[in-house]
Simulated assay, not measured.
Amino acid sequence: MSGLVAGSGIVAIVLMAMLALPAKAAQPSFDCDGARSEVEKMICGDDALADLDLRLARDFAQALARASADQVPDLRASQRAWRTQMLKCARTGDPRGCVLEAYTRRIAEF
């Protein structure tokens, strides 16, 4: 029985150590090592924004797949324009809120 108690103690120690480890942060659709803008860096450091970025990337890829060949250039242009506007969130009073709203609205468009 003492082996069972000792084993339980080891399991408890391992579980406590696992809880102490930082959770793996969400990764956006882009490489955070290349993040240059304030907004990109914010997205890389914020799990919720990184998750929204991944969702938007998936939704955009699906929209491209559904689009006809003549619609693709306009769809890509609209995404570039959206991104340009979203990056301007760094100059607002609430950059995170602005980015959150930008992603939410863009995802709703798809």
Results as ranks from 00 to 15, higher is better:
Asp33Phe: 13
Ala26Phe: 01
Glu40Ile: 07
Ala63Glu: 15
Ala50Asn: 00
Ser68Tyr: 12
Ala25Gln: 12
Arg58Gln: 10
Met42Asp: 04
Pro73Asn: 01
Asp33Thr: 06
Asp70His: 06
Glu38Thr: 14
Ile43Leu: 15
Asp53His: 08
Ala61Asp: 15
Ala48Leu: 05
Leu54Glu: 12
Gly34Leu: 08
Glu40Gly: 11
Ala26Gly: 03
Gly34Thr: 09
Ala65Ile: 03
Leu56Val: 06
Gln62His: 13
Ala35Thr: 10
Cys32Gln: 09
Leu56Ile: 06
Asp31Trp: 13
Gly45Ala: 09
Leu56Asn: 08
Pro73Lys: 02
Glu38Val: 12
Ser29Gly: 06
Gln71Pro: 02
Ala48Phe: 08
Asp46Tyr: 08
Ala25Asn: 04
Phe30Leu: 04
Leu56Pro: 12
Ala69Pro: 02
Glu40Leu: 08
Val72Asn: 02
Asp31Cys: 05
Gln62Arg: 15
Phe30Pro: 01
Leu54Asn: 13
Cys32Met: 13
Asp70Met: 09
Ala61Cys: 04
Ala48Lys: 12
Arg55Ala: 08
Ser29Glu: 13
Asp33Val: 10
Pro28Lys: 04
Pro28Thr: 01
Leu52Ser: 11
Pro73Asp: 01
Arg55Tyr: 05
Arg55Gly: 06
Ala50Trp: 00
Met42Glu: 04
Gly34Ala: 14
Leu56Met: 15
Arg55Ser: 07
Arg36Asp: 10
Pro28Gly: 06
Met42Pro: 04
Phe60Arg: 14
Asp46Pro: 13
Phe30His: 02
Ala35Arg: 09
Ser68Gly: 14
Ser29Ile: 12
Leu52Lys: 13
Asp46Ile: 08
Ala25Tyr: 07
Ala50Gly: 00
Arg36Ala: 09
Met42Ser: 05
Leu49Ser: 02
Leu52Phe: 10
Ala48Cys: 01
Asp53Gln: 02
Asp47Gly: 02
Phe60Asn: 12
Arg58Ile: 03
Asp47Thr: 00
Leu54Trp: 01
Asp46His: 11
Cys44Glu: 02
Ala69Ile: 12
Pro28Leu: 01
Leu64Val: 05
Ala35Trp: 03
Val72Phe: 07
Asp70Pro: 05
Asp51Val: 10
Cys44Arg: 00
Glu40His: 09
Asp53Lys: 05
